[in-house]
Each structure stands twice: as structure tokens, then as C-alpha cells.
């Protein structure tokens, strides 16, 4: 299958995959390093959106203009709607529990 693709396309697929991996890595690092639930919700959802986004873009590019490729684009839109909704749900739950967002000088938690 790869042989059929042009070199430029392969390069793009590789670039997208690497970018997706990079942003997923950033997301993971953020979850481990950031101090509280709010800031983690930022990175867990956001860098992930782009991580999954680039991954799906690579998939769509590999498959080409076929049914499966179109579906991966749809998946991307799906992620773009559900991801912030989930992040909002987490943040709102924390807010209603009375969790005060971390500020400079607080302890990590």
C-alpha cells in the first residue's frame, strides 16, 4: 500500500504521525507535571485533541478518499465536540465540589 503512495504523501503521513505523537507526549507530560485538576484538565483534553487530530489526519491521508478516510475525518469532528465537553464536565465537577484552583505558591496536589 505504501508503494502506491507518492513520496510527498508518505512524508506528510510520517510528519503527521510524529506531530500527533509529540502532542500526545506533551499531553501526558502535562498531566504528570501540572499541579491541580483544572490545569490537568487543560492538557489532558487539549494537547490530546491535536494529538488525536494529527493521528487521524495521518490515517485519512494513508487511506485516501475512500469511505474509511471520510469516516476518520468525521471522527475528528466527533473528538472536537466531545473533548471539550468532557473537559468542561470534569472542571465543573471540581468547581462545584469547591476545589479552589491552584495558584502560585500553593502546594502541588
Amino acid at each position: 500500500m505504501i508503494d502506491a503512495l507518492g513520496t510527498a504523501r508518505v512524508a506528510l503521513v510520517v510528519a503527521f504521525t510524529l506531530l500527533g505523537l509529540f502532542f500526545t507526549f506533551v499531553s501526558m507530560t502535562g498531566v504528570l507535571r501540572l499541579p491541580d485538576v483544572y490545569s490537568r484538565a487543560h492538557t489532558a483534553s487539549q494537547a490530546d485533541t491535536l494529538g488525536a487530530g494529527f493521528g487521524l489526519a495521518a490515517v485519512a491521508l494513508t487511506i485516501g478518499w475512500e469511505a474509511a478516510g471520510v469516516k476518520s475525518v468525521l471522527l475528528l469532528f466527533f473528538i472536537f465536540v466531545t473533548n471539550p465537553t468532557a473537559a468542561h464536565a470534569i472542571a465543573r465537577a471540581a468547581f462545584e465540589e469547591g476545589t479552589v484552583p491552584w495558584t502560585e505558591g500553593d502546594e502541588r496536589r
Binding site: 483544572y38 484538565a41 487543560h42 492538557t43 483534553s45 487539549q46 494537547a47 485533541t49 472536537f80 473533548n83 471539550p84 473537559a87 468542561h88 472542571a91 465543573r92 471540581a94 468547581f95 462545584e96
Partner: peptide, 11 residues
Amino acid sequence: ITLTPGTLTVR
């Protein structure tokens, strides 16, 4: 706002 990194709608 939530999708744009660095800002997260809480409520």
C-alpha cells in the same frame, strides 16, 4: 474556549 489550549470553561 475549552478547545483553545490554555483556557478552560469551568462554569
